[in-house]
């Protein structure tokens, strides 16, 4: 059990990170902190998928760089590059929403906002 955990430390770490993020999203009242929790969750999933492509002692698969097999699978990295772009746009949208909530209601604490409503 411990052995299996140790061998898959990268996956275990992303699961822990994911749970920390989810906990933050659920428990924090401050909208920015809530959203930081979401960013942590995103990072956890990204790290998990990138870790899928890693090969022990592998080289970066760049043509003409003199790298030798085995190569690291570049596909997950390409996917996550797209994923990061999506995450950045989500963050931008969320932050601009938070700014507008602040201007309209004068607070970004979820519990106080419920009273404003």
């Amino acid at each position: 059990m411990i052995d299996a955990l140790w061998q898959n430390l990268d996956y275990a770490a992303s699961v822990v990170l994911f749970c920390i993020g989810l906990y933050t999203v659920i428990t924090r009242e401050n909208l920015i902190k809530k959203f930081m929790g979401l960013n942590i969750m995103e990072t956890a999933v990204f790290a998990f998928i990138v870790a899928l492509g890693v090969v022990e002692g592998g080289d970066a698969p760049i043509a003409g760089s003199g790298a030798t097999p085995p190569f690291i699978n570049p596909l997950p990295q390409a996917l996550i590059l797209t994923g990061i772009v999506v995450a950045v746009s989500t963050t931008a949208l969320a932050l601009s929403l938070i700014i507008r909530i602040w201007r309209q209601c004068g607070t970004i604490e979820a519990d106080e906002l419920r009273e404003v409503e």
Partner: peptide, 12 residues
């Protein structure tokens, strides 16, 4: 904005 934010967090 608040409704959109709630939607965004769940959606994300």
């Amino acid at each position: 904005e608040m409704a959109a934010f709630k939607y965004l967090v769940m959606g994300a």
